[in-house]
Amino acid sequence: MIDALSYGLMGLGVVFWFWGTWPLLGHRSVLYKLHSLSVSDTLGSMAVIVGLLLKIPKEWPLLVLALISLAIWNTVLGYVLAYCSTEGGGND
């Protein structure tokens, strides 16, 4: 049961990865790609880590730390990239 759930979460994470990374190859704006990357790299990766957490519950402190820092860093990086890529053009 737990095993199935864990594989399910990892599978979901991988699906998110593919869905969110695919638009990277297209010709959309940086901000549009950033939206889909936040689906794949933040939410998808969080799902993968929760899947791993169910597999090895005894390492929970480190994995919880990984989960929290992943969410925070990725979100902040998204904000910094959005801010820097729009400010640099000098159109403000």
């Binding site: 901000l31 950033l34 889909s36 969410a71 979100t75 902040v76 904000y79 959005a82 801010y83």
Partner: peptide
């Protein structure tokens, strides 16, 4: 800012000192 950027449909572009966020 974290909360707004965390949800995938919205990203904060800029926090202006006069009390506004630019949201994409």
């Amino acid at each position: 800012i974290f909360l707004i950027t965390f949800t995938p449909k919205t990203i904060v572009l800029k926090y202006q000192e006069d009390g506004w966020y630019k949201v994409h």
